[in-house]
Amino acid sequence: MKILVCISNVPDTTTKITFSPDNKSFNATGVQYIINPYDELALTKALELNEVAGGGTVTVVHVGLADAEPNLRKALAVGADDAVRIDAAPTDGFQVASEIATYAKDKQFDLILCGRESIDYNGGVVPGMLAEMLDLPEVNVITSITINGGLSQVERDIDGGREALEVSLPFVASCQKEITEPRIPNMRGIMMARSKPLQVLPAQGGALHTEVSEYALPAAKAGCRFLEVSEVEKLVELLHSEAKVI
């Protein structure tokens, strides 16, 4: 199969988040960037699906600036065949989806896999927007996928449970944990990645739909009130009369 995997480049999960003094931008100084954890799962699953199918290609696409290239090389080292970077600072889900749609529309991918959400802006919007722009079906938050011929069986999380679906290729899916375990690049993969193609394409541009006007950190907590092990009844009383949550 010919599979496209959309990859976003996000601050490492241990990052302490800070903003510029005027609160207009994220302070990226010293921040380590990683492949979005859900996108690592999407990539691994794409490779596994092709292994089962006995062949195919996996292309990774990223909308972003050159500083993301080490992570695209990492995706190649994990096993992707080629990488595409669309050269624009990603600032809005609609913009990212439009750029990927423009790239993908005449490439006849059998399947497009994304992550459930990027852990920086947490929108979870790119996969659905991309599907709508390409007029494809989309299944979000999938926890399993198998493909038989032109038909795919997927499971997804729903409110209060899980759902099994059948959908015809081509379609877009966004991956949730449980779908697989992320693959770690080995030495051979890292060597091979150096000579795999990483293509940079110009962005189409276009008006942005949204703009962040200001960031803020969560309000600091008042501090923890400690109780003794013997005071559990008091805790229950405080949760009732002071915190008013039970």
């Binding site: 601050p11 990052t15 302490k16 988040i17 903003f19 994220f26 852990i119 920086d120 802006y121 947490n122 008006a207 942005l208 739909h209 949204t210 703009e211 962040v212 006007s213 200001e214 960031y215 803020a216 950190l217 969560p218």
Partner: peptide, 12 residues
């Protein structure tokens, strides 16, 4: 940033 911050987003 997974609950580590808030953003005021202008819908334009």
């Amino acid at each position: 940033f997974s609950n580590k911050g808030f953003a005021d987003l202008a819908l334009k």
